[in-house]
Design a protein around this nucleic acid. Structure first.
Lengths: 245, 245
DNA sequence: ACAAAAGTGTTCTAAGTACACCCATGC
DNA sequence: GCATGGGTGTACTTAGAACACTTTTGT
């Protein structure tokens, strides 16, 4: 198994998870920690994205799927390959060199970066072999390698994509309220949206379906629940070439 | 120099060139031809994208820039890295295997695909060491490797991108007529656009500047010339988060 | 009864869409 | 003077933007 790794090629995964309760868009990161064997000095103590070498027999998409499964146990989540990072010096700051000395890494490693969209509630971090933790996109910790850059580029891509495609619903539970969708847009884009205009716009979409259900267990007026129908979306959607530049 | 190649990593370039006269969006391809040494049977006779291995000391962007320069002599053209292709079997059809036997290629090569936007008139194919030729995007020849797939994905990305960013002007001469812009949109998107509505829309953009010039040397009524101002575009442009999904 | 969040309507403005003829020029 | 492509105007429809109060529910 180990022998099948392509040593200069990896996939890194930016796992976005939205927490409906705290209204926070988070990124799942794993701890990187290394103490000197001799002086017990802490050499490396930060966070990185999950990633792994591409194996010789698998596609890039397979690698990403495998990496996500090992971290979260989840499969079939929305994923997107968004950029390759391959600068010759991307792994060459001192902390990273110390770390790499412990691992079977080529110095010149190209990484194909993916991002995933899912709900934090679907991930159980307790039974996790990595020290994985959610961080709000706006309060990232100290990051190793070029992973801060990768995360920020993923985030830019996500911002753009959520305006033109209904990927926002990948971040929400199957049943959601209109206000939850609005909160999510506001979190991602960092803007305020007028509630009346937003409701009208969303409710008028045929692929947003009002359910015969309301929230339960909330301590105030329970809100109407809706679902998103990918089927209806696909059927009605024909690209309508709106040249806005 | 040769020794610095990363054997399992390449960059392939989809060079889009627009010909204002023939109103054709073209792709620049190079000939791939191989005869058997013994039977003089033609083993390979098709076209491929230009590409080359990434060198150990250069960034991916550098590789793309170098490849374009070697093919066309041009630098400073619009380029975009749009996708990595790395399936284990992407180079394994019989014709490709014959070809690869002649070259220093790993079977499992990952390619980072870029596309370029330029004007066919800027490229001089006469003094070209490759047998390079323009092909209309809708009449591509027989293509080697997975290059047809790569071209079609580049084209999809271009279609999408030209709707939201002013990259269309990279394909046009500095001074252009409104109808030339319309023709270009129609070529790329494969749609008809109402001329009156299009003119109004375009002329109202502050970054489209009417010049004190008309076409010369045309055999009919000469049209008003315009230019695109990237400066004005950048100054006025603030992303206006229009949620359309 | 009160706190909290859900939900509701109208007016104005900007932009898209549909549609058919005259005009200026080079030859 | 005529063929060719350049250029023009109006009415309608749709969607976005601005804006503040009432309703429902659980506690």
């Amino acid at each position: 198994m180990e022998s099948e790794k392509i040593l200069n090629l990896s996939v890194d995964c930016v796992v976005f998870g939205y927490d409906t309760n705290t209204k926070s868009l988070n990124v799942l990161l794993i701890k990187r920690y290394l103490k000197s064997k001799f002086t017990s000095e802490v050499l490396v103590d930060d966070y990185v994205l999950t990633g792994y070498h591409v194996l010789k027999t698998e596609t890039l998409d397979d690698t990403a799927t495998r990496v996500l499964k090992e971290l979260t146990g989840l499969t079939d989540q929305y994923k997107k390959q968004f950029k390759a990072f391959g600068d010759p010096d991307r792994l060459t700051n001192p902390k990273d060199l110390v770390w790499i000395a412990n691992e079977a890494f080529n110095l010149r490693t190209i990484t194909i970066a993916y991002y995933f969209l899912l709900k934090t509630e679907d991930v159980n971090l307790e039974q996790n072999t990595f020290e994985a933790k959610w961080f709000p996109i706006n309060a990232l910790p100290d990051l190793g390698f070029d992973h801060e850059k990768i995360i920020l580029e993923a985030y830019e891509d996500l911002k753009e994509k959520c305006l033109s495609e209904p990927i926002i619903f990948k971040l929400l539970p199957d049943k959601f309220t209109i206000n939850e969708v609005q909160d999510l847009y506001q979190s991602i884009l960092g803007i305020d949206i007028d509630n009346r205009n937003f409701r009208r716009k969303l409710i008028n979409k045929k692929y947003i379906i009002a359910l015969d259900e309301k929230q339960i267990g909330v301590s105030k007026k329970p809100a109407q629940l809706y679902m998103f129908s990918m089927d209806i979306y696909n059927k009605m959607f024909s690209k309508n070439y709106l040249i806005s530049m």
